[in-house]
């Protein structure tokens, strides 16, 4: 009986982890390719969820309506996250690259992205207040019972979906011309420019991916847990950062492993030690890793060592 319960917790943990994966990949991509810790990511995630909720609640623009209202609303939410991400690119990353090159203080884009975090968060708070909102989709009770274990179908699908997206991303990075260009930029932006790579056109693609990953992850969250809130980004954002560090900064597959590990340790420590213990377990694990093995499980040595 104990082992069955434990196994159920493991399943729940992996499902929870699947939510973190996409956001962790968004973090790890920007830091791996651009050496930029983008603190706006949790806000982009929240932006997608809240825009999706607001459109499905108040109705779509131009009087469009139909059975898939909620899906269209989420889609528009994802687009908003992408646009928001491009705004961040324009006013933090590109601007500082142009003005200061690579050598000056890396803290500048980081601080600027914190500014955008506040802008997006409080914009939504001004528009919709701080309440948690219910998000209704046709899938209300879709648990699958398999050998006595409860597996939620949307959660399971979202786990598969996250892994597929990341696998696709991995192929993109390793097999395509765009991937080669991105890896060249990660290695050395100046050399990449000399090699004829149009850095200013490629870098926005990273931010499009970031926005897309956040948007998709927020949509999955909304469908699974039937709720969104202006603070949904904070929780997922901090856990995704933990997942990124555990997996190793800059490693896409590491982010998947990290996301699952964080999800697992969160549910297991809640199961064994009570609801509020997860915070200590997850962050304690992270701190130990940062101090003793800062490259994480699959990380690259050179990333993030820059001075502030």
């Amino acid at each position: 009986m104990f082992f069955e319960q434990l196994l159920q917790q493991v399943i729940n943990g992996l499902m929870l982890g699947s939510i973190y994966i996409s956001v962790a990949v968004a973090f790890t991509l920007t830091i791996g390719i651009l050496n930029f810790l983008n603190f706006t990511i949790p806000a982009l995630y929240m932006l997608a969820g809240m825009v999706g909720w607001s459109l499905s609640h108040y109705g779509l623009p131009f009087g469009i309506s139909g059975p898939l209202n909620w899906a269209v609303a989420l889609l528009i939410g994802i687009v908003c996250a992408i646009l928001g991400s491009l705004l961040v690119e324009r006013f933090t990353y590109r601007y500082f690259k142009m003005k200061h090159g690579d050598a000056t203080e890396h803290a500048i884009p980081l601080v600027s992205s914190l500014g955008f975090l506040l802008i997006f968060e409080y914009l939504i708070l001004i528009a919709h207040g701080s309440d948690t909102r219910g998000f209704s989709t046709p899938f209300s009770n879709t648990d699958l019972r398999l050998f006595g274990f409860i597996i939620s179908i949307p959660q399971f699908l979202s786990l598969i979906f996250s892994i597929l997206i990341v696998a696709g991303l991995s192929v993109l990075l390793n097999r395509t011309k765009l991937g080669r260009a991105l890896r060249a930029i990660a290695e050395n932006p100046e050399v990449a420019t000399l090699m004829g790579i149009e850095v200013n056109k490629i870098v926005p693609i990273v931010f499009v991916m970031t926005g897309f990953l956040c948007g998709v992850s927020a949509s999955i969250f909304a469908i699974n847990y039937h709720e969104v809130s202006p603070y949904m980004g904070d929780h997922v954002g901090t856990k995704a950062i933990a997942a990124m560090v555990i997996g190793g900064l800059g490693s896409v597959w590491g982010a998947i492993a990290g996301g699952l590990i964080v999800g697992l340790s969160e549910t297991l420590s809640i199961y064994f030690f009570g609801a509020s213990s997860a915070q200590i377990t997850v962050w304690g694990l992270l701190l130990i890793l940062l101090v003793f093995k800062p490259t994480g499980l699959f990380g690259h040595n050179a990333i993030g060592k820059g001075k502030f």
Binding site: L37, G274, I280, W283, L287, P294
Partner: peptide, 28 residues
């Protein structure tokens, strides 16, 4: 002593982790 082993982004994250742990300990 452990924190100053970390550099750059890692130190930002490590100090962030410490604040979360302190809050977690108080809550528990």
């Amino acid at each position: 002593f452990p924190i100053l082993r970390t550099k750059g982004v890692y130190m930002v994250l490590a100090t962030f982790a410490i604040a979360e742990i302190v809050a977690g300990v108080i809550l528990n």
